[in-house]
Simulated assay, not measured.
Amino acid sequence: MKLKLFFQQTITLALLLLIGQTAFAQSNFTNAYTNDGKPLKGNFVLIGNRSDAPYRLYIPQKQADCPISIKWARLYWGGHAGGGNMDQVILNGPGGLRQTITSSNGHKETNGVVWSDADYLIYRVYFPNTAGRDLDIEASLIAPVQRTAGYCRGGHYPYSSMSYGGNLTADYAYWSGDNTGYGLESVLINVKKIKQDFPANQNIVMRFFAGWFGGPNSGVMAIKAEAYKGEMMVDPSDHFNWVPNTATGAYKVGEATFPTVTTHRRACSNNLDFGTFTYNPSDGRILWTKSGDREVGSGQEYLGQSSGFDPTKTIVNDGTRVDDDSYYYRWADITSIMQAQPAGSIDGEYRVDNIFNQGGSAWPLGSGWAMVVVYEDP
């Protein structure tokens, strides 16, 4: 288990929370302790370790006859989120200290990609050369406004056709056009316009069907979702694609791909039904509700939920959020506990037990804790 990495990340989070600002998967934090803006005649000590493992606290003292005083102390703990008790741990320390600490302060990540600030979404149906030639789609925006696109459009939803090219701010949805070769077909959703015109509606729902007009080979296909902030434009080098208008400061928020699907069904008459894809701008996630077709299966899955594990994108991550970052951290003020420690019992070994970690020893990262103590040495 990569306990050292988790320990380093937990320590980093606690330190940054104390002295400045950072981000826990796009959530901002401010200073936790300022001493009311007054100069502090002292310093702070930061310790930590994995769950159920001790670490020694040592606070240097300038003069033996002038004891230090504890000004502020906070305990942090974190691990892989799940259905267990993430809010309670046991703090052990010198002088017989053993106290249950309970707190719901902190943050819990969702299991999946979160794009709560997207202005545009692009759904891309990919079919590489090895999969087959000329995959045809029926892609329908079914809520809160109705549009349909694809060579097989109208087969299930007789809506007005999506726009093609032109001004990408004028309509709710756009289709890239029919690709009779290999590669992809795409649909662009103007999330910003939908939110403006339908403020009471929280769900933007798409449904996809697909089948082969040309000859299928492996038949593998996948739907990829991308989120963008700012204005979009047609890619001048590829009309099956759109790109952010960098001249206006637009940029990609993130991207992720749903699990692949394999089918040899023929276009239009016997299309594969992927099911619905629901984006909630307030929640920020895309929920795939599977159709029940044998190639797709049934049930629901959030975008990113099945992605591979990447420990470099957990706890304090880089904002792309394309991997399983279903982690949590909690914090509790333990100033009064540390101030109540008997004289001579502040220094010594501390240990935090029973930190919840979904998956236990089978999960690649262990749970961990960190303790920050601010002291004054007059």
Rank of each mutant, 00 (worst) to 15 (best):
T12Q: 15
L13A: 13
A14T: 00
L15S: 14
N35Q: 12
G37R: 12
N43R: 03
F44Y: 15
V45E: 12
I47A: 05
P60Q: 11
Q63C: 01
A64C: 02
I70R: 09
W72Q: 05
G78S: 07
H80F: 05
G82T: 09
G84T: 02
M86H: 05
Q88Y: 04
N92K: 15
I101V: 15
N105Y: 11
E109T: 11
N111H: 11
L121N: 01
L121H: 06
Y123E: 11
R124D: 07
V125E: 04
A131K: 10
L135G: 07
I137K: 04
A143F: 12
A143D: 05
H156D: 09
Y159C: 07
S161H: 13
Y164Q: 14
T169Y: 06
Y172C: 04
G181C: 06
M206N: 09
F208L: 09
F208T: 06
A210F: 03
G211D: 03
G215A: 08
S218Y: 07
G219Y: 02
M221D: 08
D238W: 09
D238R: 01
D238I: 00
V243L: 07
P244M: 08
A247H: 00
G254K: 11
E255C: 00
P259H: 13
T260F: 08
A267E: 03
N270Q: 15
N270H: 11
S282G: 15
S282I: 11
V296N: 01
S298Y: 07
S298C: 05
G299R: 10
L303H: 04
G308D: 12
G308L: 13
P311T: 02
I315M: 14
G319Q: 10
S326P: 03
Y328A: 00
W331I: 04
A332D: 10
D333S: 11
S336H: 03
M338Q: 09
Q341G: 03
Q341P: 06
A343W: 07
I346W: 01
E349K: 09
R351E: 14
D353H: 04
N354C: 01
G360C: 07
A362H: 01
W369V: 05
M371H: 10
M371Y: 07
M371L: 15
E376M: 05
